[in-house]
Design a protein around this nucleic acid. Structure first.
Lengths: 197, 197
DNA sequence: CATTTAAATTGACCGTGGTCACTTTAGAAG
DNA sequence: CTTCTAAAGTGACCACGGTCAATTTAAATG
């Protein structure tokens, strides 16, 4: 058997263990939510030693990042599938399920919040990447929306996009610890994007 | 000796222990920063048992809240002493030292961020209270500033205040994990407050 | 004094995230 | 088949936040 075959075989075992851990983690979360996840419980269900867990994930957060990141990606798929919204309200509505997931549990929200910093810097994690995707999606929306014309010229797409995306997704929900502010945000945002109305 | 005298004497002992704990905590932080603070270390220096710590503070965060809240208050005293700034840039500059403290360490920032949610809700902690103070200060500024006239009427002071204060203090620093965004925020903010310029 | 009582204090103990020196595994090489 | 080797896996161990039944303190009372 050639070296590559061995390497592949070894990788197979690694992948299998990793899958066992992820499956176990998903099972725990499905039953008890993200908050209640214990590494001990995960390795017990996966049938591996505790040390193995940390060979596959840097720490507990790394696992959560991956699981939560995957969930965000699923939401983004749905958002993209809906196409470009026609109004600010439509935009808020399209993002709502994602925002709702983000604030479904305090723990989830904290993980996401922690990553939002990394998104703007060099260090990139799984969730930071999904933020990048969200930024792209929203940028497309903004470019196509009618009210885009009302934005003063010196506020370029990049700035607006960062402002809108990050504000929408995190800020107001963080500050109010619920998804309610989405509605108020829509009001502020409309006023901001259409100052002459 | 009347009952009240006893109550007072007991309170004296309590206060003394509490002071010992706070002094010890401050010493540790001065030497090694907030991040490195361990409850073990604090009680060791204070010369009390571990259980005593938790009789005086609900948890480690409660201690940090108090220490960080006190520091924020000191900054707010300085900010108020400076009087009302005349421009957006002056406003950003006046808030800068406070913002810098807020992001001096990841841990400090996380504590503050955690409290920013509580500020908008019912549950109020020490830091949430200081946020209230900051909101008042900034509201005063906004009311007196010349560009206040340019804000569309339906954006009332309450909304603007919340938006500006919370955005300035937390959001952009959180998203970029540094104080740099203050400058960019000044640009966005000016554009937002003076849409006809 | 001695006794009582409630608050303050103690420290052994626990749960959970994370480490690391050692053991096992499985393909490569002879 | 045997030996070698590097990756994968193991589990005893540690760090640190937090708990609680038992103990000490100190003022009130007789």
């Amino acid at each position: 058997m050639p070296k590559q075959a061995m390497a592949r075989a070894i990788q197979q075992r690694t992948l299998k263990t990793r899958a066992k851990l992820l499956d176990a983690a998903n099972a725990v979360i499905t039953e008890n939510g993200y908050e209640a996840l214990r590494v001990e419980e995960v390795v017990l269900r996966a049938g591996v030693a505790k040390g193995t867990f940390f060979a596959h994930f840097k720490d507990k957060d790394a696992l959560m990042d991956q699981l939560i990141g995957a969930e965000i990606d699923r939401h983004l798929d749905m958002i993209e599938a809906q196409g470009v919204p026609e109004t600010i309200d439509g935009m808020a509505a399209a993002l709502m399920p994602l925002v709702k997931f983000m604030s479904c549990e305090r723990y989830v929200f904290d993980v996401i919040l922690r990553h939002s910093g990394a998104a703007a810097n060099a260090g990139i994690g799984p969730i930071a990447t999904t933020f990048g995707r969200q930024a792209e999606v929203t940028a497309t929306w903004l470019a196509d929306m009618p009210f885009r014309r009302d934005i003063s010229p010196d506020l370029q797409a990049e700035g607006v996009q960062a402002f809108v995306v990050q504000a929408i997704s995190l800020v107001f929900c963080a500050l109010h610890n619920s998804v309610d502010p989405q509605e108020r945000l829509a009001i502020y945002l409309r006023a901001w994007l259409t100052p002459n109305a």
